[in-house]
Simulated assay, not measured.
Amino acid sequence: MTLGKFVFSLLLAALAGPLSAAECPPLLQGELPKLRAKESIDLCQRFAGKPLLVVNTASHCGFAPQFKGLEAVYKRYQGQGLEVLGVPSDDFKQEAADSTETAKICYVNYGVTFAMTEPQQVTGDQAIPLFKDLTQQSGAPRWNFYKYVVDRQGKVIASFSSLTKPDDEDLLAAVEKAIASQP
């Protein structure tokens, strides 16, 4: 897609206004509370039509330094439309007991500027709908910092284990593929 076509498609999307629930991909239907904020993230309004990297996080996990790499990926591709969504979870017993500590670790210690939610369940029957859909499309997260790359239509195009660092060439190739996908 040329830059001109990309800008034109963004303008059309902006003029069209928010998507209705019928137009929003199932993956993005719903809201999640923002980390340490009074407002929620309307997933459809914020992410529909955009390439997305979704990561289940845990602030006390040995993989927590990946926050820096995730932030670097976000900064590198943000201008091309990429969004990153961090979803803290205690499913693997490594998330802070209070969201104030989670926020401090994310925002102060690692300088995260991408969207973060309050801690959520990401595995099993009690998983939030977003992760139920991610799991159905690609498999359940097996540990913290499992990564899902989602195209502009809300389809998972790749998933990566916790061991995959954010600067991994296969992960970045998947992000670039998601960016190139048509809305």
Rank of each mutant, 00 (worst) to 15 (best):
L130K: 00
Y146T: 14
Q45I: 03
S9G: 07
R36F: 01
V84Q: 04
P51I: 13
F8C: 04
Q80H: 13
L15C: 12
L43I: 04
V7K: 10
L12Y: 00
C106D: 09
T113F: 01
G81W: 08
V73D: 08
G49F: 01
Q126R: 13
F8Y: 12
Y107K: 14
E83M: 10
V156A: 00
A48D: 04
G81D: 07
F8M: 11
E39S: 11
Y146S: 09
K34T: 03
L28M: 04
K177F: 00
A64S: 15
K132W: 08
Q120M: 09
S59Y: 05
A115Y: 12
P33F: 05
Q120V: 02
A96N: 02
G154D: 02
Q94P: 11
G154N: 00
A103Q: 09
L35F: 09
L10M: 06
A140T: 02
N144H: 11
K155I: 00
V149D: 05
E39K: 12
F131W: 09
K132Y: 03
I105C: 15
L85P: 13
E95I: 06
F47L: 13
A174P: 10
L35I: 09
E101M: 10
L12R: 14
V73E: 06
A96T: 06
Q121I: 08
C106N: 03
D133V: 12
D125S: 15
V108D: 14
Q66F: 02
G79P: 01
A16L: 11
T57S: 06
N56V: 04
A13M: 05
F131S: 07
A115G: 01
F63N: 10
C44I: 03
A173Y: 00
H60A: 07
H60V: 03
D170N: 14
S162E: 09
G30Q: 04
G124Q: 12
N144P: 09
A158M: 06
D42S: 13
V175Q: 03
K93V: 14
Q136W: 01
L35P: 06
D42Y: 00
T123F: 04
Y146D: 08
A96L: 04
Q136F: 04
T123V: 15
P26W: 03
K50A: 14
C106S: 10
R36I: 05
Q80M: 09
I105R: 10
